[in-house]
């Protein structure tokens, strides 16, 4: 997995690419999300359009990021979720937990 990030109107947009299956890739995303809190950056969108699939490790990282951000007055939103990941979010009922937008721009705008 590769991870890039950018900032738009005070919102951090993370763009993981590849698969999130556990191991060093998962640690990287987890650490990145938690570092944002330390930098007082609490509005985060994860663009999942380039993530082929993830297993429960990936879902756990999303939940961990969401919980940590909310506990610090922030929010984590998902955008451009692929069909495969949306089906995992649905069967695990996590679809009810995350704000989920079709496009990154919509997710960013929702913070204003």
């Amino acid at each position: 997995m590769k991870l890039t990030s950018r900032e738009e109107n005070g919102v951090v947009i993370l763009e993981p690419k590849g698969k999130i299956m556990g191991g060093p890739d998962a640690t990287m995303l987890h650490d990145f999300l938690h570092d944002l809190i330390n930098q007082n950056k609490k509005k985060v969108v994860i663009d999942l359009s380039k993530v082929e699939w993830m297993n429960s490790t990936g879902l756990g990282i999303l939940i961990s990021g969401l919980t940590t951000l909310r506990n610090n007055g922030g929010e984590l939103k998902l955008a451009s979720v692929t069909e495969k990941i949306e089906s995992l979010l649905t069967i695990t009922k996590l679809i009810t937990v995350f704000e989920n937008y079709d496009k990154v721009e919509e997710a960013v705008k929702s913070f204003s």
Partner: peptide, 9 residues
Amino acid sequence: NLMKEIGRG
């Protein structure tokens, strides 16, 4: 259990 980080595998 919905907000737990683990246990879905």
